[in-house]
Amino acid sequence: MAMDINGLNSSQANSSKARNAQKVVSSPVSQPDESNNPAKPSGETVRISAEGQTLNRISKDIDLETPVNQSRVEALRAAIADGSYKVDAQATAAKMLESDSLF
């Protein structure tokens, strides 16, 4: 994933590759100046790569689609508070190994 802000990328070679691979989303950046006109655009732009845009969209989708089972949360909270919650170490280790294989 590449980000180029006003050509200040650390490598000029990577910068040209990044510009070719990016979908450009431009937005004027307003900064206060001595004339007290903060809405005046300064002409600066920010470029967000296609990967960054995709990650942002996925993040928003996950936030909308992940319901919290409040009754389950309360049951676990109560079990932890009264000391009756027991961790199954074997199941926890198996899940960790399973998720590790995804990467």
Rank of each mutant, 00 (worst) to 15 (best):
G7E: 03
A75F: 02
V73N: 10
A78R: 14
A79G: 05
D100Q: 14
N9L: 08
K40N: 10
V46Y: 10
N36M: 03
V24E: 05
N36V: 04
T45F: 11
E44K: 05
A50W: 00
K40R: 15
Q53I: 13
A78C: 02
A50H: 00
L76G: 03
S30P: 09
V46C: 06
Q31V: 13
S16A: 04
A93Y: 00
E98I: 00
K17V: 10
L55E: 14
A89W: 06
A78D: 15
Q53G: 10
P28S: 03
L8Q: 05
R72I: 02
P38Q: 03
K23I: 13
E74G: 03
L55F: 10
A79Q: 12
E98K: 08
P38W: 02
D4H: 03
P32R: 02
S26E: 14
V24T: 09
I5H: 01
N14W: 12
P67I: 00
I48C: 02
D82F: 01
L55I: 12
Q12Y: 00
S71A: 11
G43V: 05
I48D: 02
E74R: 12
P67M: 06
V46E: 07
R72K: 14
K23S: 11
T92K: 09
M3H: 06
D4K: 07
T66Y: 08
D88L: 01
M96L: 15
A81R: 09
K60Y: 08
I48N: 02
V46T: 12
L97G: 15
A91H: 07
E98N: 11
K95T: 14
N6F: 05
S99T: 11
L97Q: 11
P32Y: 00
A89S: 13
S30M: 05
G7P: 01
K95E: 15
S84L: 08
L76A: 04
E65D: 09
N6W: 01
S84Y: 04
S10R: 01
S42R: 00
